[in-house]
Every structure is written in C-alpha cells, then in structure tokens.
Design a protein around this nucleic acid. Structure first.
Lengths: 298, 298
DNA sequence: TCGATTATTGCCCGAACGACAATAATATTA
DNA sequence: TAATATTATTGTCGTTCGGGCAATAATCGA
C-alpha cells in the first residue's frame, strides 16, 4: 500500500468532508479514494471515518490521526522542497508577515529592493499585529516583537524596539519641556494601541513600576496618523525609535530625555525579531530573504 | 512512486552504507533498493548518493535530506502507533530513562508494582545522569532534574529536588553541631559528583553567593556509597531529601538546619520532572505509565 | 414518496514493484 | 601486479497494486 498516497487522500477527505470533492482535487474517481482510505483503515486496524452512503464524518481517532498527519505531510513537503531547490536560484512564492507599523515604514520599502534583486521571488506580505503561528505553515518568515517560541525556529534580532518619548518643538515651546517623568502627568498624551491594549507610560522608581501617563488627546493603532498628531503639536508621544527616526532627522519631533528611563511595558528590551524555521534556511528563497533583511536592518 | 517506501530504503542504505545490507533488512533483492532510490532521486531532481560499483557515499544534500526524513518517518510511526493502540490495553515495549540515584531508590521499586499491574508492558529502563534527547526517539519517558526543553514535550513536576544537609548522630556528637553555615568550613564534607561537576555547598548572603564547602573526605557519583560514608560518621553530606528520607526515618542521619538556607546550585528549585512527548500520551502504555508515576510520586 | 447525490463494489487494464539472472566495476588478497 | 570476490546496476518476467468505468445501494432533500 502506498501509505503516503492514502494519507493525502484521507487528509483531503477530512478537509472537504466529501469523497467526491476530494477526488476532484486529485483528478481521480471517488472510488479510488474510497479504496485507499479503506486500505489505510485496515492497515491501522481502526475506523477513521464514519460513512453513510451520502455523507462522511470523522471519528474521534480519525481526527487525532488527521491532526498528527498534517505534521508529517508538511515536513515531507518541506524536505522535498529543500532538495529540489538545492543550489537553485531564489524563486517561488515567499510569504512574509510583519508587525503593521514596522511593515509599512521599514519592511515594504526594503522589499522593493529585494524584488529588484530577486525578480523570480513572488512576495506575499501580510501585515498584522496578531501573532500568527509560524508552524502552521501559512508563513515562511515572520517579523515580530518578542523572542523565539521554541528551539526549532530561529529568531534573529533585527533592531531594538525601544520606545522613546518625543514632541514637536512648537508643543514644547508652548507647554514647556518636562524636566522629570513626574511632570508628564501635566502634559497631553498621544498613545499607540497594540492588540494587547494601549501603551501607558511607565517608569521604574525604587524597583516599583509607576504609571506616569498624561491625559490622552489621541489613541490609535495607526502609527503614522499618531505621529502626524505629534508633529502638529497635539501632545507628547511614545513610539519605537525606528518609527520616529525620520521625524527626528527632519527636526519635526524632538526626543525628550529624563533621568528615569521611560518605557511602555515592564520588559523594555523586547526587540524586533526575524523568525523562521531553522531547517528551511537551506531553501534559497528563504536564505536570500533572511540574509537580505539581516544585512539591511542589523 | 511509493515515496514512503523509497524513503525507508534510502534511509536504511544511508544508515548501513550498503545497498546489499539494507536490502537484507527488507528481505528484497538489492536491485529493488537501487531502483527505488534512483526513482527518488529522479523525483527530487538531485543526487542523494554517490555510487561506485562497490561502495556508496552520501552526498551533501543527501545527508541533509536523510536527517530531515528521520523526523518524518518517526512522526508517522508514532501516529500509526497511536491509532493502532487506540483503546487497547497497555502493552509493548516502554523505554524509560532516569537519573541514576532517583532510579535506583525510587523508580525501580515503583516499577515492580507497575509491572504487576500491567504485565503486558515490557520495561526497558536506562539509568543515566547524562541528558538523553527525548526527541531522538530512543526513549518514551524520561525523569530528569530541570524543566521542559520545548513546547512539544510535557514536563510534570514529580517532587522537589531540594538538597538538605545531614550527618550521623555520632559525627555530630564528636565534632559538634554547626550552628551557622560559616562553621561548616571547620567540618568534613561528603560530596556528590554530577556529570556537570561536584556539588559545592552554597548559600546566599546579602544577595551574593558564597561557597561554604568543608574540606572533602569523600567524593563520588554513587549516592548509596556516599550515604554509607555519612552514616558511618565520616562527615556532613548534602543530598536530595528523597534520597535521604529512609536514613532519616531510621535515625541514622540527622537533618541540619541553619538560618541561611543551603543549596548546591544557584537555582535551588530544580525539581524532579517526568518528561514525555505530549501527543504520545494517547498511547495506552505511555498514558498508563505517566498516570502511574504521577499518582505514585506526586 | 420520488429523485438526485454520494459512497461503494465489480471488472478490466496499465503501471509499478519484486524476483531472478547476468553484467560491470572495484576493493581485497595472494 | 593479477586474480578473486564482493557489490551495484541493468534486463526480463510475472505479480500486485492502483486507476478508470460502470453499476449498485443507500440517504438526504424536495
């Protein structure tokens, strides 16, 4: 019995809930799937599917088997791809996901150069602040704040994600430059909202965390719009240094400094990381992208 | 092409370095392996093996593929086993590894009861203080000091591994009972040697770690022998509470207590953990053993 | 209750795999 | 250096396995 074929048939039947539809995907008659799945069940000595003449249901053990088989099929596909693309030029589809802000301001511009350098790679970029599962195989590369979830994935630190406080020169002229973090509460605040909630201004005094946020004049998950607000002198804003660098360079925003360092969470050194599955680094398109992004950002 | 069969053939050829020997394991002529591997190479579009008429060598990409394929074959075997043994009685071979001391004193006696309860499970116990890789599939269950290496494996805390200082009554009568950790250096020490080195006596004073070890009169990786030395009044010994409980109960050794807690490493709460692969909990023999050991020790 | 959809079973055919023998090449030994 | 034996490959044949097609049985929906 060609178990691998049986697994693919079974898997598709489970996904589509129908022998007929699954058969269509393989361009073979439904009878083939029926027989192959039956073979598989005999081989395993258990019923994977509960069939009636008109419908298919997955049994409890069938569902368990299905779940575990996904890993097998995915791993094998990856291994085959690794060999097939061995010492070939980078090509094919490359799926990247990134934090929205970083994606818009840094990643997408960089990828323009990448596309020029590797025209045969088709980019599929998804910007989202939700954390997608790298292992589910819906993505080749991910850019995230945080660290490596487990040992099979590699996480390379691209740059710091340190939040710094800034304000427009006009705002500071009118409201005064705050000399201490405690004075911040007399000011106006512009806040970035992450999927995990807003980002209050925190500082550590005598080993204890204190919230020194100013009253809010703007809250959004859109970094560009918030920065615009800050440039117009609406208030003080905290955002990652990489997101503000352009404004600071142009003199539109000034970085504030205090004796006590300010941050937006209790783990200030959560950097921006590039994440990928270790063993997939051998695939040319992935190696090319990783090397390119590391070279560009680190 | 039955790729799975080809993978098994290829894998065996790599392991044995010979088509003939590999063919013998499958009870098929070598010509079959030759053809199947050739099919596989054609399918992948790359040479996996460098052949001369008398010998076989693995190519670079062949070696990479071989390594990755091992995971695929192992996962598939596990999945099949899960289904096959679904709602069957615990049976078959069960491979357990454990720390030597814990194994001798606690695990092996417990397993006597386990064997009586599940006579169809054939136990294969390996005692070693080296950390074996659970994922390499050479072991079903592991008992280790420490924590979970990654998210796919489950680690259940069985009991504390706190080291406590003890000495024989006769020794204390002769040498005096140390009142403070600093006095320990005037005493005689009996030390356990782990694979990571010996276990000095440490205590934390003003947030700083200090070594308060006494001069050594005995060092060994054999806990039973060391305990014997302590019983005979040769010196003070630090060992896990579970290893000393029997001696203390019999009054052969007395637990020493200090105002400053003593330990043998800078991470005192490294407990004894039972470790297994999460998804394999569905296999009856593994579920039975995990449940049994947790019930027994926790 | 009737009709249509869906899974299964029977039968035939082609392709794939194993068995066996023969061949070519190379490592080992004299 | 030459002879021998071992080892991988190739050719040929027969069996088995899986796909194609048609017919059947069972069930969901109208």
């Amino acid at each position: 019995m060609d178990q691998l074929r049986a697994l693919r048939y079974f898997s598709k039947v489970v996904q589509l809930g129908s022998f007929t539809q699954a058969a269509a995907e393989f361009s073979v008659p439904p009878s083939s799937l029926s027989r192959r799945v039956a073979d598989l069940e005999k081989h395993l000595g258990a019923d994977l599917l509960k069939r009636s003449t008109r419908s298919v249901q997955v049994t409890e053990i069938g569902e368990i088997y299905f779940q575990q088989i996904q890993d097998v099929l995915r791993l094998l596909a990856h291994s085959d791809e690794t060999v097939r693309s061995y010492q070939a030029k980078p090509m094919g589809q490359l799926r990247i996901t990134s934090l929205v802000g970083f994606g818009e301001q840094r990643l997408l511009p960089a990828l323009e150069d990448f596309k020029a350098q590797y025209p045969d790679v088709v980019l599929d970029v998804r910007l989202s602040d939700e954390l997608t599962s790298l292992s589910r195989d819906d993505v080749d590369l991910a850019i995230r704040g945080g660290y490596a979830p487990n040992e099979r994935v590699q996480a390379i630190r691209l740059m710091s994600n340190e939040f710094i406080p800034v304000a427009a020169p006009a705002y500071l002229a009118e409201m005064g430059v705050p000399q201490s973090v405690l004075e911040l509460q007399e000011h106006k605040g512009i806040y970035f909202r992450t999927p995990r909630g807003p980002t209050p201004w925190l500082c550590q005094v005598d080993g204890e965390w204190r919230d020194v946020s100013a009253p809010a004049v703007a809250i959004s998950n859109n970094g560009a719009w918030l920065a615009e607000q800050a440039v117009r002198g609406r208030g003080i804003m905290m955002a990652p240094r990489w997101a503000l660098a352009a404004y600071i360079d142009r003199g539109e925003l000034l970085e504030l400094s205090f004796d006590t360092t300010l941050s937006v969470n209790q783990n200030p050194e959560l950097a921006i990381h590039l994440i990928y599955q270790k063993q997939r680094y051998l695939v040319p398109k992935i190696k090319a992208a990783v090397d390119f992004l590391v070279e560009r950002f680190r």
